[in-house]
Design a protein around this nucleic acid. Structure first.
Length: 630
RNA sequence: GGGCAUGUGGCGUAACUUGGAUAGCGCACCUGGCUUCGGACCAGGGGGUUGCGGGUUCAAAUCCCGUCAUGCCCGCCA
C-alpha cells in the first residue's frame, strides 16, 4: 500500500499461481490476468510481501463470503520460485516471498545490468519530440521557466530510459510582440548591458512596457514588429541577432543546470520556410478549414468549432462558434502556427529547414543545432509522438490543436500529442510576470541563476565545515552538484498539475524529503564499498527477512517504477520512490553492520553496491548527478 | 454565462487515472540515540470529521450528483 508495486517478475508469478487456484476453486468466475493484476497490493510487512483482494471480486459473482473464498483460494495456491507460504486474512490473500531466492534474483539482475538496470523497452521503436521550455528570447529564465525546463528534461530522460528515441526541441518565438518591444528598447533606450545579457534585456523590457502607455511609442513598436515579419528587413536581421544573444545567455543557465537540447526552432525560420502556407494549402484542400464569408469573419480562415465538438466529445463549449486561424489581414494566430508546426513534427510536411550549429559542445558533449537561414539539411522531426511541456493555461489551445488532427482524420496523431500540463509557479505575495517584472522581486530576484547561486552559497557553508571532504579543491564542484540536486528534486517532487508557491526558506533546507538526502545516502553507500571487492555472490545464507529484505523489494521494483512514471508523465513517482529507497537503506545502514558483518559481509556489500547503483541510475532520471562525498 | 484545475494535521505534500486492510512522508514540536561503515542520519511520540452535503458499494481521499472556496481559460490581442 505504501509501495506502489513489487517487481514485475514477482507479480507475474503471483498472478499465475493465483489464476491457477481460481480456475480450480471457482471455475466459472471468468477472472482474467488483468483483473488479478489490478487487485494486487503490498500489505503491512507482518502480513506478507504481496497481496490480492480478488476474493471480493469473486464474491460478487459467486454470492459467497469473501473470507471463505480467500481461505479456499489460499489453501489452493501452490508455492513457486519466489512465493512460499500463502495465507488468507480478512478476505485478502497474502503471500510471502522466499527472501533468499528473490534477493539472489534481484541482486544478480542489478549486477548483470550495471549501468542499465533501471530501464524498460516500453517505447522501443518510437521516436518522440519533447518541446520545452520555449521561453521568450527577451528575458532570463525565472523559476517558473525552470520548472518547465526541469520537467521537460526529466521526462526526456525517462523516455530515453524506456527506449524511446527522444528529440529535445526548444521553440523560440522571436517574432512576438515581446521581442519587438525589446528590440525597440534596444535601439531607443540604449543603455549598455552591465550584467548577464538576458537579465539586462529582461529588465529593460519591463521599462519599455511602462513606456507603452504612450500611444506614440506603442505605434512605433507595432511598426517594428511588422517590419520584423518581412524576413529580409534590417529590423528582422537585428532583432534575430538580439534574440540570439539572449538565447545564448539563457543557455548558459541551461548549461549550469545541465539541461541540454538537440535543436532550437525559431519562429522567424518557420515564417521564412513558409511552413504556414504549405500547411494551410493542405488543410484548405481537405476542407478542414475554410475562408469565412460571414460579416463578422470576412476574409478570415476559420475552423468550425461545432465540428470539433462532434469529433472531440470532451471539448469545452466556448462562447464563439468558430476559431479564427488566419486573420483577415493575412497574419496567423497562435493556434494556426502550432498546427503547422505539429504537421511538421509528425512528418506531414517535409522538413523545410536548414540547420546550423548554435553551440559546438554542450555539457553532455553533444552539439546544439538550430534552424537557420543557411546550413545543411538534417532531418529532425518526423516523429510518431509529441510531448509538449506547456503550462495549464494553454489547455484550451492544445485541445483545439489535437482536435484539428481529428478533423484531418488523423486520430492516431491527435492521440499522440501529449500536453504535459503543469501548474504555475508563484512567489509569496506575488506572481512572476515578465511584463511587470514580478521575477525581479525585491532584494534577490527569482531568476534560475539567482536560485542556483543562493542555493550553492548555502551548500558551500555546509560543505566547508564537512570533515569528510578532505580535498577542498573539490568543494566547489560538490557544492554545485548538491545545489542542483536540491533544486531539481524540489521542483520534480511536486505533482505537475499542482501550483507551486516558491519560498526561499523551504528552498534552502536540505533535510527530510530532499535531493541532498538522496545524494547523502549515495555518498554513505559509496564510502562503504570504497576499496572493497564486490564479487559474485556465492550463497544467500545470511539474507534475512528484515531491513535487508525491505531493501531488496524496493530495488526489485525500480524498472516498473520507471515505466509507471514515464507513461503517466509524473516525476513525483520517481522522487517518492527515491525517498522510500533512501529511508530503507538508512534503516539497513543503522541496523546491519557491513564491514564488520562477519559472515554476512559479502551479502551486505552486494546490497550496498546494488543500492548505490540503483540510486545513481534513478537520480539520473531526474538529471541529478551523484557525488561520492559531500 | 460556459469550461478546466486545485482543496488532505500548524506548514509543505503522497495516494485519486485502476475503490481495498490502521490515509503515507517531510518541516515544525516533544523524547531518545554518535568509544561501532559519514548525524544532510536513525528510533519513538503528540497532532487528521481528506472543503461541505448527499448517493453508489461488502468497502470511498479515490467513483457519481450537488455545493462552497481559490486560481486559470473561453479575442481577428500577444
Amino acid at each position: 500500500m505504501v509501495m506502489q508495486a513489487p517487481s514485475m517478475d514477482l507479480k507475474e508469478e503471483f498472478v499465475s499461481i493465483l489464476k491457477e487456484a481460481i480456475s480450480k476453486g471457482f471455475p466459472g468466475s471468468g477472472i482474467g490476468d488483468e483483473e488479478i493484476l489490478l487487485s494486487l497490493s503490498v500489505p503491512k510487512p507482518e502480513n506478507g510481501d504481496i497481496s490480492s483482494s480478488i476474493s471480493f471480486r469473486i464474491a460478487k459473482t459467486e454470492k459467497k463470503n469473501p473470507k471463505e473464498i480467500a481461505e479456499r483460494l489460499a489453501s489452493g495456491v501452490k508455492g513457486a520460485r519466489f512465493i512460499t507460504k500463502t495465507a488468507a486474512l480478512n478476505g485478502y490473500i497474502n503471500s510471502s516471498i522466499d527472501e533468499k531466492e528473490y534477493a539472489a534474483h534481484v541482486l544478480g539482475s542489478i549486477k548483470k545490468q550495471k549501468g542499465s538496470y533501471v530501464r524498460s523497452g516500453l517505447g522501443k521503436g518510437t521516436k518522440v519530440i519533447v518541446e520545452s521550455p520555449s521561453v521568450n528570447p527577451n528575458k532570463p529564465w525565472h523559476i517558473g521557466h525552470l520548472r518547465n525546463a526541469l520537467l521537460g528534461d526529466s521526462i526526456s530522460n525517462m523516455m530515453e530510459a524506456c527506449s524511446y528515441k527522444v528529440e529535445r526541441e526548444d521553440y523560440i518565438d522571436d517574432l512576438g510582440m515581446q521581442v519587438a518591444e525589446s528590440y525597440w528598447g534596444y535601439t531607443n533606450i540604449s543603455d549598455k548591458p552591465d550584467k548577464k545579457f538576458d537579465t539586462w534585456l529582461g529588465e529593460q523590457y519591463v521599462e519599455v512596457n511602462k513606456r507603452l502607455q504612450d500611444k506614440a511609442i506603442e505605434e512605433q513598436v507595432r511598426k517594428t514588429l511588422e517590419r520584423m515579419e518581412e524576413g529580409s528587413s534590417k529590423e528582422a536581421k537585428e532583432a534575430r541577432k538580439l534574440a540570439e544573444e539572449c538565447v545564448r545567455a539563457q543557455y548558459q543557465t541551461a548549461g549550469d543546470y545541465s539541461v541540454y537540447h538537440d535543436v532550437l526552432v525559431w519562429e522567424s525560420d518557420i515564417v521564412r520556410a513558409k511552413l504556414l502556407d504549405k500547411a494551410f494549402s493542405i488543410l484548405t484542400k481537405s476542407g478542414v478549414v475554410k475562408k469565412d464569408t460571414s460579416e463578422k469573419y470576412k476574409d478570415c480562415i476559420i475552423v468550425d468549432l461545432e465540428r470539433i465538438k462532434q469529433v472531440a466529445k470532451d471539448f469545452e463549449s466556448p462562447n464563439e462558434d468558430v476559431k479564427v486561424l488566419i486573420r483577415s489581414n493575412g497574419t496567423a494566430t497562435y493556434v494556426a502556427k502550432d498546427i503547422a508546426f505539429h504537421m511538421w513534427k509528425f512528418g506531414l510536411l517535409e522538413d523545410p529547414f536548414s540547420y546550423g550549429t548554435f553551440m559546438e559542445g554542450q555539457g553532455n558533449g553533444k552539439p546544439l543545432y538550430t534552424t537557420s537561414e543557411f546550413g545543411k539539411r538534417m532531418g529532425f522531426a518526423g516523429v510518431s509522438m509529441a510531448v509538449n511541456v506547456i503550462d495549464n493555461r494553454q489547455r484550451y489551445l492544445q485541445l483545439i490543436l489535437k482536435s484539428m488532427f481529428m478533423l484531418m482524420g488523423r486520430k492516431d496523431i491527435s492521440d499522440s500529442i501529449m500536453h504535459l500540463s503543469y501548474g504555475k509557479v508563484d512567489v509569496e505575495g506575488g506572481t512572476l510576470s515578465g511584463r511587470e517584472g514580478g521575477w525581479m522581486g525585491s532584494g534577490r530576484n527569482y531568476t534560475a541563476d539567482s536560485l542556483l547561486a543562493e542555493t550553492e552559497k548555502k551548500v558551500i557553508e555546509i560543505v566547508e565545515n564537512s570533515e569528510k571532504i578532505s580535498n577542498k579543491e573539490n568543494a566547489k564542484a560538490i557544492a554545485r552538484a548538491v545545489a542542483i540536486g536540491a533544486i531539481k528534486f524540489e521542483f520534480l517532487k511536486i505533482a505537475p498539475e499542482k501550483n507551486i508557491t516558491f519560498s526561499w526558506e523551504r528552498a534552502l533546507k536540505f533535510e527530510g524529503n530532499t535531493g541532498p538526502y538522496c545524494m547523502y545516502t549515495y555518498a554513505r553507500a559509496s564510502k562503504i564499498i570504497e576499496g572493497q571487492e564486490v564479487g559474485m555472490l556465492k550463497d544467500m545464507d545470511h539474507m534475512s527477512r528484515s531491513d535487508d529484505l525491505e531493501l531488496v523489494k524496493l530495488l526489485g521494483m525500480a524498472p516498473e517504477m520507471l515505466e509507471k512514471a514515464c507513461s503517466e508523465y509524473r516525476t513525483n513517482i520517481v522522487t517518492d520512490y527515491l525517498i522510500e529507497l533512501c529511508t530503507a537503506f538508512s534503516r539497513f545502514y543503522e541496523t546491519m553492520p557491513v564491514l564488520k558483518g562477519g559472515g554476512a559481509k559479502e551479502l551486505r556489500l552486494a546490497l550496498v553496491d546494488s543500492t548505490a547503483e540503483v540510486l545513481k541510475e534513478t537520480l539520473m532520471l531526474l538529471g541529478i548527478a551523484v557525488v561520492k562525498s559531500m
